[in-house]
Design a protein around this nucleic acid. Structure first.
Lengths: 149, 149
DNA sequence: CATTCTCTTTAGAATGATTATAATCTGTTG
DNA sequence: CAACAGATTATAATCATTCTAAAGAGAATG
């Protein structure tokens, strides 16, 4: 056994729960079976953009039994503690983004797919001041594209 | 009577229907009583951001009887012919903007109000190319603000 | 490790915006 | 002014999301 192995991997034979577990702990969220399962699906699969419905399906597909209500609750709680970010691009669905760093999006209007655009590479100039008495909570740039056939 | 008066104002005693009438004609939309009334409310009151519900109320308030279904239909038809623009900032409501020129928005997260930002004054650099096979249909910038108490 | 307390989960009902349906009405054209 | 295509409307239907209140499960304690 290599000493470099994660603690989590040494404790039992399962995959690294620890990363997600630690995130939940740090965020002050009680690591329940459901939150761990959803967290693993979300955070251990690279950056992704999910809807509640899709995450629910993913969970079912992975053999995890979680109610849709819990999926909604969890997505919102994760968003509240900054583990997820809500992306508003379509008035009929809410997307949640596992990438919470500064970035923007391409939105494919034909199929609803989202792609990240690194925020560090973008520069916006000429923005007016926020209205008196208000502070900017976020600047969102959405580039809507459609396939040209 | 001044020769500079609008044709519309000379034809009868009513307010300038003509402007809205012309817009409908140009767009190829049959100028029905309902579309004229909604068009007047929308286009003759300066730039505004409305929801279907609000426009419906405005119509009632103005003594115009229009069903909510027609308000929805009309808003979408107007959007299709570029008399309106849909603004996606809130996943629970759809806003329609009477300003269809190049511009962006402040979105007040506390009360849902929108304010236009002239697009000519803004410069965005560093945007990556649109994904292969796609063309950009629009770039939307939303600055989310909240009042700081 | 049993108790207890609080936080979670959940099935199912409720909500609310939006869309579909199908009958009725109204511009427009000949 | 007849007749048809397009428009309006009341109403039902959808669909994502939220609410409810009841049952379940972590965590701290003795």
């Amino acid at each position: 056994m290599d000493a470099k192995l994660d603690n989590a991997e040494m404790e039992n034979g399962t995959r690294p729960y620890s990363q997600t577990l630690a995130r939940l702990r740090d965020a002050g969220l009680r690591p329940t079976r459901q939150r761990l399962a959803l967290g693993r699906l979300l955070f251990e699969g690279g950056d992704q953009h999910v809807t509640a419905e899709r995450l629910h399906e993913q969970a079912q597909g992975a053999g995890v039994s979680v109610s849709l209500a819990t999926v909604y609750n969890t997505l919102h709680q994760f968003t509240d503690v900054n583990l997820l970010r809500e992306v508003v691009v379509d008035s009929s669905r809410t997307y949640f983004d596992t990438n919470v760093s500064d970035h923007h999006h391409f939105f494919h209007e034909d199929d609803g797919r989202l792609m990240d655009i690194d925020g560090a590479k973008i520069e916006v100039s000429g923005l007016p001041e926020a209205p008196a008495g208000t502070g900017v909570s976020r600047v969102d740039i959405v580039i809507r594209v459609r396939s040209r056939d």
